[in-house]
């Protein structure tokens, strides 16, 4: 009993030290005596950069939600032209989805490798991510070209305008992401794992995973619901 009490007290002290929002600095034994006083900061640059980029990504998703809203309102306005049921090829969409989802996974593997400071595997997984992403962009461009060839371009109807705006905006994001990916691989090659490079890698992986989240909404709302319409 007497042996158990101090160990119990130590354990409580440790768990309080782990709680970043505990009030007061009593019973501390903690690593951070300042937490809960508004004086523990500033947080490390790594966290501030990641958080700032998270705010940007959320605002980017808000931008996409405006395009989604426009599409939802205009999806039925085909002006006598082709509707989603006539145009969408779900097999193509399934392949695009598989490519983007797998690239999100390999991007995660790249960030694991970068945490191990393993430059070779980081580069390999980034390359795989880029190849899969490029495949996605190519398939999407082919789809656009085929649709425009069928006289179903963005000027055909309000439905098609909103479709090209929404899907094209996502495709543009993926293309910009590919450019970023290329520059990240070059920077990693030249500068290796400096803190700044690691922060950029963190931001890139956030960006890439977020594009996949947007694609989930996109293939559901636009393609799967549109093909059944």
């Amino acid at each position: 009993m007497s042996a158990a009490a101090p160990s119990d007290g130590r354990r409580r002290g440790a768990s309080e030290a782990d709680d970043p929002y505990r009030l007061g600095r009593h019973n501390g034994g903690g690593r951070d005596e300042t937490s809960g006083h508004g004086s523990g900061g500033p947080a490390s640059k790594h966290i501030i950069v990641g958080y700032g980029f998270w705010i940007f990504l959320l605002s980017d998703i808000v931008l996409f939600s405006a395009f989604f809203a426009a599409y939802a309102v205009l999806a039925g306005e085909t002006a006598g032209g082709p509707s989603g049921r006539d145009l969408f090829d779900l097999r193509n969409v399934a392949i695009e989805t598989a490519l983007l989802l797998t690239s999100s996974f390999t991007c995660g593997l790249a960030s694991i490798a970068s945490r191990r400071r393993d430059a070779t595997w980081t580069q390999i997984w980034l390359l795989v991510t880029g190849v899969l992403g490029a495949g996605f962009v190519l398939l999407e461009m082919r789809e656009f070209v085929v649709m425009i060839g069928m006289r179903a371009g963005p000027s055909r109807s309000a439905f098609l305008s909103s479709f090209f705006a929404l899907v094209g905006c996502h495709g543009l994001h993926v293309s910009v992401g590919l450019l970023w990916l290329g520059t990240m691989m070059a920077q990693l090659w030249v500068k290796s794992f400096r803190p700044a490079i690691q922060r950029r890698l963190l931001c890139f992986s956030l960006f890439w995973h977020t594009l996949d989240i947007i694609w989930v909404g996109l293939f559901t709302i636009v393609y799967l619901l549109g093909a059944g319409r």
């Binding site: 690593r31 937490s35 900061g41 998270w54 593997l109 803190p195 992986s205």
Partner: peptide, 29 residues
Amino acid sequence: DRDGYDAADLRDSAPGEELPGHGEPASGI
């Protein structure tokens, strides 16, 4: 400035950053 993944700040996590044992359902690969 404690940069890098291994020097984890205990008060906050950056999004996309994984701190082992901080409420993650599973970690790593």
